[in-house]
Amino acid sequence: MHMADALISPAVGGSMLAVTAGLIGYSSKKLKENLDEKVIPLMGVLGAFIFAGQMINFTIPATGSSGHIGGGMLLSILLGPYAAFITIASVLIIQAFFFADGGLLALGCNIVNMGLFPCFICYTLIYKKIVRGSVDRKKIFIGTTLAVVIGLQMGAFSVVLETIASGISALPFKTFVLLMQPIHLAIGLVEGIATSAIILFIYNAQPELAAGPAGINESVSVFPAKKVFIGLIAGTIIVGGMFSWFASTHPDGLEWSMFKTAGVEELEGPEHGVHSLLGIIQKKTAFLPDYSFRVSENAPKEEGEAVWPSVNAGTSVSGIVGGVLTLLLALLAGFLLKKRKKVAGNN
Protein backbone atom coordinates (compact mmCIF):
# COMPACT_ATOMS: atom_id res chain seq x y z
CA MET A 1 0.00 0.00 0.00
CA HIS A 2 2.85 2.35 -0.73
CA MET A 3 1.49 5.48 -2.38
CA ALA A 4 3.21 6.43 -5.62
CA ASP A 5 4.29 9.88 -6.78
CA ALA A 6 2.31 9.33 -9.96
CA LEU A 7 -1.01 9.33 -8.09
CA ILE A 8 -0.67 12.40 -5.91
CA SER A 9 -0.84 16.13 -6.45
CA PRO A 10 1.85 18.55 -5.21
CA ALA A 11 -0.55 19.97 -2.61
CA VAL A 12 -1.23 16.56 -1.05
CA GLY A 13 2.38 15.37 -1.29
CA GLY A 14 3.73 18.67 -0.01
CA SER A 15 1.43 18.90 2.98
CA MET A 16 2.08 15.29 3.97
CA LEU A 17 5.83 15.86 3.68
CA ALA A 18 5.47 18.90 5.92
CA VAL A 19 3.45 16.90 8.46
CA THR A 20 6.09 14.19 8.41
CA ALA A 21 8.96 16.63 8.79
CA GLY A 22 7.18 18.20 11.73
CA LEU A 23 6.57 14.84 13.38
CA ILE A 24 10.16 13.72 12.87
CA GLY A 25 11.41 16.98 14.35
CA TYR A 26 9.04 16.67 17.29
CA SER A 27 9.93 13.02 17.92
CA SER A 28 13.65 13.77 17.75
CA LYS A 29 13.25 16.57 20.23
CA LYS A 30 11.31 14.33 22.58
CA LEU A 31 13.92 11.59 22.28
CA LYS A 32 16.74 14.02 22.90
CA GLU A 33 15.12 15.26 26.09
CA ASN A 34 15.70 12.01 27.86
CA LEU A 35 18.05 10.22 25.63
CA ASP A 36 19.61 7.02 26.71
CA GLU A 37 22.30 7.05 24.04
CA LYS A 38 21.99 3.27 23.78
CA VAL A 39 18.83 3.82 21.82
CA ILE A 40 20.43 5.22 18.65
CA PRO A 41 22.17 2.02 17.60
CA LEU A 42 19.14 0.06 18.80
CA MET A 43 16.84 2.05 16.54
CA GLY A 44 19.13 1.64 13.57
CA VAL A 45 19.59 -2.07 13.98
CA LEU A 46 15.90 -2.70 14.72
CA GLY A 47 15.05 -0.78 11.57
CA ALA A 48 17.32 -3.12 9.66
CA PHE A 49 15.58 -6.00 11.40
CA ILE A 50 12.17 -4.78 10.22
CA PHE A 51 13.52 -4.39 6.72
CA ALA A 52 14.86 -7.95 6.66
CA GLY A 53 11.90 -9.33 8.61
CA GLN A 54 9.42 -8.00 6.07
CA MET A 55 11.00 -10.28 3.53
CA ILE A 56 10.62 -13.44 5.60
CA ASN A 57 7.25 -14.95 4.85
CA PHE A 58 5.11 -17.60 6.44
CA THR A 59 2.48 -19.61 4.64
CA ILE A 60 -1.16 -19.02 5.48
CA PRO A 61 -2.95 -22.37 5.66
CA ALA A 62 -5.52 -23.20 2.98
CA THR A 63 -4.94 -20.07 0.90
CA GLY A 64 -1.65 -20.71 -0.83
CA SER A 65 -0.53 -17.19 -0.06
CA SER A 66 1.94 -15.94 2.50
CA GLY A 67 2.21 -13.09 4.98
CA HIS A 68 4.78 -11.08 6.88
CA ILE A 69 5.05 -8.40 9.57
CA GLY A 70 4.28 -4.72 9.08
CA GLY A 71 6.71 -3.17 11.51
CA GLY A 72 5.16 -0.03 12.98
CA MET A 73 3.49 -1.76 15.91
CA LEU A 74 6.41 -4.09 16.66
CA LEU A 75 8.75 -1.11 16.82
CA SER A 76 6.34 0.86 19.00
CA ILE A 77 6.09 -1.97 21.51
CA LEU A 78 9.85 -2.34 21.68
CA LEU A 79 10.91 1.30 21.43
CA GLY A 80 7.94 3.50 22.32
CA PRO A 81 6.14 5.74 19.80
CA TYR A 82 8.76 8.43 19.19
CA ALA A 83 11.71 6.21 18.44
CA ALA A 84 9.43 3.82 16.55
CA PHE A 85 8.12 6.60 14.34
CA ILE A 86 11.61 7.77 13.43
CA THR A 87 12.70 4.21 12.73
CA ILE A 88 9.74 3.28 10.54
CA ALA A 89 10.17 6.57 8.66
CA SER A 90 13.77 5.57 7.99
CA VAL A 91 12.75 2.14 6.73
CA LEU A 92 10.27 3.77 4.36
CA ILE A 93 12.92 6.24 3.16
CA ILE A 94 15.26 3.41 2.24
CA GLN A 95 12.46 1.53 0.50
CA ALA A 96 11.59 4.66 -1.45
CA PHE A 97 15.15 5.33 -2.55
CA PHE A 98 16.40 1.87 -3.34
CA PHE A 99 13.32 -0.07 -4.33
CA ALA A 100 11.19 2.82 -5.57
CA ASP A 101 8.41 1.61 -3.27
CA GLY A 102 6.37 4.77 -3.22
CA GLY A 103 8.25 7.87 -4.27
CA LEU A 104 10.11 10.82 -2.85
CA LEU A 105 7.14 13.19 -2.89
CA ALA A 106 4.80 10.41 -1.72
CA LEU A 107 7.17 9.66 1.14
CA GLY A 108 5.23 11.99 3.42
CA CYS A 109 1.98 10.15 2.63
CA ASN A 110 3.60 6.79 3.23
CA ILE A 111 5.18 7.79 6.53
CA VAL A 112 1.86 9.17 7.73
CA ASN A 113 -0.07 6.10 6.58
CA MET A 114 2.30 3.50 7.93
CA GLY A 115 3.99 5.36 10.76
CA LEU A 116 1.69 7.94 12.31
CA PHE A 117 -1.32 5.63 12.70
CA PRO A 118 0.34 2.56 14.23
CA CYS A 119 2.98 4.37 16.31
CA PHE A 120 1.09 7.32 17.71
CA ILE A 121 -2.56 6.43 17.55
CA CYS A 122 -3.00 2.68 17.73
CA TYR A 123 -0.10 2.01 20.08
CA THR A 124 -1.09 4.65 22.61
CA LEU A 125 -4.86 4.38 22.33
CA ILE A 126 -5.30 0.63 21.77
CA TYR A 127 -2.24 -1.43 22.68
CA LYS A 128 -1.36 0.53 25.81
CA LYS A 129 -4.98 0.51 26.98
CA ILE A 130 -5.33 -3.25 26.61
CA VAL A 131 -1.87 -4.35 27.72
CA ARG A 132 -1.52 -2.76 31.15
CA GLY A 133 -1.58 -3.82 34.75
CA SER A 134 -0.72 -7.49 34.97
CA VAL A 135 0.43 -8.53 31.52
CA ASP A 136 -0.44 -11.97 30.19
CA ARG A 137 -0.28 -13.75 26.85
CA LYS A 138 -3.93 -13.22 26.00
CA LYS A 139 -3.75 -9.47 26.57
CA ILE A 140 -0.64 -9.21 24.40
CA PHE A 141 -2.23 -11.23 21.62
CA ILE A 142 -5.49 -9.27 21.58
CA GLY A 143 -3.81 -5.88 22.06
CA THR A 144 -1.25 -6.40 19.32
CA THR A 145 -3.59 -7.91 16.76
CA LEU A 146 -6.31 -5.33 17.31
CA ALA A 147 -3.87 -2.43 17.18
CA VAL A 148 -2.31 -3.68 13.95
CA VAL A 149 -5.68 -4.30 12.28
CA ILE A 150 -7.04 -0.87 13.17
CA GLY A 151 -3.77 0.83 12.26
CA LEU A 152 -3.87 -0.74 8.82
CA GLN A 153 -7.52 0.20 8.33
CA MET A 154 -6.65 3.81 9.13
CA GLY A 155 -3.67 3.68 6.80
CA ALA A 156 -5.75 2.23 3.96
CA PHE A 157 -8.45 4.83 4.46
CA SER A 158 -5.81 7.51 4.43
CA VAL A 159 -4.52 6.18 1.08
CA VAL A 160 -8.05 6.59 -0.27
CA LEU A 161 -8.36 10.14 1.05
CA GLU A 162 -4.97 11.16 -0.34
CA THR A 163 -5.75 9.67 -3.75
CA ILE A 164 -9.18 11.29 -3.95
CA ALA A 165 -7.83 14.66 -2.79
CA SER A 166 -5.16 14.51 -5.48
CA GLY A 167 -7.68 13.88 -8.24
CA ILE A 168 -5.37 11.96 -10.58
CA SER A 169 -7.16 8.64 -10.29
CA ALA A 170 -10.74 8.49 -11.58
CA LEU A 171 -11.78 5.89 -9.02
CA PRO A 172 -14.94 7.02 -7.21
CA PHE A 173 -14.58 7.36 -3.44
CA LYS A 174 -17.05 4.60 -2.59
CA THR A 175 -15.57 2.03 -4.96
CA PHE A 176 -12.08 2.78 -3.76
CA VAL A 177 -13.05 2.44 -0.10
CA LEU A 178 -14.82 -0.85 -0.79
CA LEU A 179 -11.73 -2.03 -2.62
CA MET A 180 -9.16 -1.02 -0.02
CA GLN A 181 -10.75 -1.65 3.39
CA PRO A 182 -11.63 -5.38 3.06
CA ILE A 183 -8.27 -6.25 1.48
CA HIS A 184 -6.48 -4.46 4.29
CA LEU A 185 -8.67 -6.13 6.89
CA ALA A 186 -7.31 -9.48 5.71
CA ILE A 187 -3.74 -8.16 5.47
CA GLY A 188 -4.13 -6.56 8.90
CA LEU A 189 -5.25 -9.82 10.49
CA VAL A 190 -2.27 -11.65 9.01
CA GLU A 191 0.18 -8.92 10.04
CA GLY A 192 -1.41 -8.70 13.47
CA ILE A 193 -1.08 -12.42 14.12
CA ALA A 194 2.50 -12.42 12.83
CA THR A 195 3.43 -9.45 15.02
CA SER A 196 1.86 -10.96 18.13
CA ALA A 197 3.61 -14.29 17.45
CA ILE A 198 6.94 -12.46 17.64
CA ILE A 199 5.99 -10.38 20.68
CA LEU A 200 4.75 -13.51 22.47
CA PHE A 201 8.01 -15.28 21.75
CA ILE A 202 9.94 -12.32 23.14
CA TYR A 203 7.61 -12.23 26.15
CA ASN A 204 8.49 -15.84 26.93
CA ALA A 205 12.19 -15.40 26.40
CA GLN A 206 12.83 -11.95 27.83
CA PRO A 207 9.62 -10.59 29.40
CA GLU A 208 11.15 -7.23 30.25
CA LEU A 209 11.57 -6.42 26.54
CA ALA A 210 7.95 -7.09 25.68
CA ALA A 211 6.71 -5.22 28.74
CA GLY A 212 7.71 -1.77 27.58
CA PRO A 213 9.99 0.38 25.50
CA ALA A 214 13.53 -0.94 25.75
CA GLY A 215 16.17 1.43 26.97
CA ILE A 216 13.85 4.41 26.96
CA ASN A 217 12.51 6.38 29.82
CA GLU A 218 8.81 5.56 30.26
CA SER A 219 7.84 9.23 30.22
CA VAL A 220 8.87 9.40 26.57
CA SER A 221 6.27 6.85 25.60
CA VAL A 222 3.37 9.11 26.53
CA PHE A 223 2.00 10.98 23.57
CA PRO A 224 0.22 14.34 23.96
CA ALA A 225 -2.19 13.65 21.11
CA LYS A 226 -4.17 16.88 21.31
CA LYS A 227 -1.20 19.24 21.16
CA VAL A 228 0.39 17.46 18.25
CA PHE A 229 -2.78 17.21 16.21
CA ILE A 230 -3.52 20.91 16.44
CA GLY A 231 0.00 21.54 15.18
CA LEU A 232 -0.48 19.00 12.40
CA ILE A 233 -3.70 20.49 11.16
CA ALA A 234 -2.25 24.00 11.19
CA GLY A 235 0.81 22.81 9.28
CA THR A 236 -1.33 21.01 6.70
CA ILE A 237 -3.44 24.06 6.01
CA ILE A 238 -0.46 26.38 5.62
CA VAL A 239 1.51 24.11 3.33
CA GLY A 240 -1.53 22.94 1.39
CA GLY A 241 -2.31 26.57 0.65
CA MET A 242 1.26 27.27 -0.34
CA PHE A 243 1.40 24.39 -2.76
CA SER A 244 -2.00 24.82 -4.28
CA TRP A 245 -0.90 27.69 -6.49
CA PHE A 246 1.03 25.06 -8.34
CA ALA A 247 -2.11 23.15 -9.07
CA SER A 248 -4.26 26.14 -9.90
CA THR A 249 -2.02 27.81 -12.46
CA HIS A 250 -3.59 25.54 -15.03
CA PRO A 251 -7.21 24.64 -15.33
CA ASP A 252 -8.12 21.12 -14.45
CA GLY A 253 -7.62 18.70 -17.32
CA LEU A 254 -11.33 18.11 -17.76
CA GLU A 255 -12.12 21.80 -18.02
CA TRP A 256 -9.35 22.12 -20.52
CA SER A 257 -10.73 19.35 -22.70
CA MET A 258 -14.22 20.83 -22.41
CA PHE A 259 -12.92 24.13 -23.62
CA LYS A 260 -11.41 22.32 -26.51
CA THR A 261 -14.68 20.66 -27.39
CA ALA A 262 -16.66 23.84 -27.18
CA GLY A 263 -14.31 26.64 -27.94
CA VAL A 264 -12.80 25.94 -31.33
CA GLU A 265 -14.34 28.67 -33.34
CA GLU A 266 -11.86 31.42 -33.85
CA LEU A 267 -10.17 30.77 -37.17
CA GLU A 268 -7.30 32.57 -38.72
CA GLY A 269 -5.36 32.27 -41.95
CA PRO A 270 -3.47 29.04 -42.54
CA GLU A 271 -0.38 28.81 -40.45
CA HIS A 272 2.21 26.17 -40.93
CA GLY A 273 5.76 25.32 -40.02
CA VAL A 274 8.17 27.92 -38.86
CA HIS A 275 5.75 30.75 -39.34
CA SER A 276 3.19 29.23 -37.05
CA LEU A 277 5.90 28.31 -34.60
CA LEU A 278 6.98 31.92 -34.32
CA GLY A 279 3.39 33.03 -34.08
CA ILE A 280 2.80 30.62 -31.28
CA ILE A 281 5.87 31.67 -29.41
CA GLN A 282 4.71 35.24 -29.67
CA LYS A 283 1.23 34.38 -28.47
CA LYS A 284 2.68 32.30 -25.73
CA THR A 285 4.54 35.23 -24.34
CA ALA A 286 1.31 37.17 -24.35
CA PHE A 287 -0.90 34.70 -22.52
CA LEU A 288 1.72 32.83 -20.66
CA PRO A 289 0.29 30.41 -18.18
CA ASP A 290 -3.20 30.08 -19.55
CA TYR A 291 -2.77 27.47 -22.18
CA SER A 292 -6.46 26.93 -22.66
CA PHE A 293 -6.41 29.94 -24.96
CA ARG A 294 -3.51 28.81 -27.00
CA VAL A 295 -4.66 25.38 -28.04
CA SER A 296 -7.46 26.51 -30.24
CA GLU A 297 -5.47 28.79 -32.44
CA ASN A 298 -3.39 26.67 -34.71
CA ALA A 299 -5.82 24.38 -36.45
CA PRO A 300 -7.57 26.11 -39.25
CA LYS A 301 -8.04 22.85 -41.16
CA GLU A 302 -11.03 21.87 -39.09
CA GLU A 303 -13.33 24.41 -40.61
CA GLY A 304 -16.78 23.11 -41.42
CA GLU A 305 -16.23 19.53 -40.36
CA ALA A 306 -16.86 19.99 -36.70
CA VAL A 307 -17.93 16.54 -35.60
CA TRP A 308 -18.95 16.45 -31.99
CA PRO A 309 -16.87 16.41 -29.86
CA SER A 310 -14.70 18.35 -32.21
CA VAL A 311 -11.37 18.11 -30.53
CA ASN A 312 -8.79 19.92 -32.48
CA ALA A 313 -7.18 17.13 -34.45
CA GLY A 314 -4.34 19.25 -35.74
CA THR A 315 -3.28 20.17 -32.25
CA SER A 316 -3.55 16.61 -31.05
CA VAL A 317 -1.53 15.21 -33.92
CA SER A 318 1.24 17.74 -33.52
CA GLY A 319 1.17 17.09 -29.79
CA ILE A 320 1.63 13.38 -30.33
CA VAL A 321 4.26 13.74 -33.03
CA GLY A 322 6.14 16.30 -30.97
CA GLY A 323 5.88 14.22 -27.82
CA VAL A 324 7.28 11.13 -29.46
CA LEU A 325 9.96 13.26 -31.09
CA THR A 326 11.02 14.83 -27.81
CA LEU A 327 11.15 11.44 -26.18
CA LEU A 328 13.31 10.03 -28.98
CA LEU A 329 15.56 13.06 -28.88
CA ALA A 330 16.13 12.67 -25.14
CA LEU A 331 16.91 8.98 -25.49
CA LEU A 332 19.15 9.57 -28.48
CA ALA A 333 21.08 12.27 -26.65
CA GLY A 334 21.66 9.89 -23.77
CA PHE A 335 22.71 7.10 -26.08
CA LEU A 336 25.16 9.24 -28.05
CA LEU A 337 26.70 10.74 -24.95
CA LYS A 338 27.19 7.30 -23.49
CA LYS A 339 28.81 6.07 -26.66
CA ARG A 340 31.13 9.06 -26.81
CA LYS A 341 32.10 8.48 -23.24
CA LYS A 342 32.94 4.86 -23.98
CA VAL A 343 35.11 5.86 -26.93
CA ALA A 344 36.85 8.46 -24.79
CA GLY A 345 37.34 5.86 -22.10
CA ASN A 346 38.96 3.48 -24.56
CA ASN A 347 41.42 6.04 -25.77
Binding site: I24, S28, L31, K32, L35, I40, P41, M43, G44, V45, G47, A48, F49, F51, A52, M55, I86, T87, A89, S90, V91, I93, I94
Partner: peptide, 17 residues
Amino acid sequence: IFAVQLLFLYRYIFVMA
Protein backbone atom coordinates in the same frame (compact mmCIF):
# COMPACT_ATOMS: atom_id res chain seq x y z
CA ILE B 1 19.30 11.80 15.68
CA PHE B 2 17.26 11.04 12.62
CA ALA B 3 20.17 11.30 10.18
CA VAL B 4 22.47 9.25 12.38
CA GLN B 5 20.10 6.37 12.92
CA LEU B 6 19.32 6.42 9.21
CA LEU B 7 23.03 5.83 8.61
CA PHE B 8 22.97 3.02 11.16
CA LEU B 9 19.94 1.47 9.58
CA TYR B 10 21.53 1.50 6.17
CA ARG B 11 24.76 0.01 7.44
CA TYR B 12 23.01 -2.82 9.25
CA ILE B 13 20.56 -3.68 6.53
CA PHE B 14 23.34 -5.56 4.80
CA VAL B 15 24.21 -7.48 7.97
CA MET B 16 20.62 -8.24 8.97
CA ALA B 17 19.46 -9.18 5.50
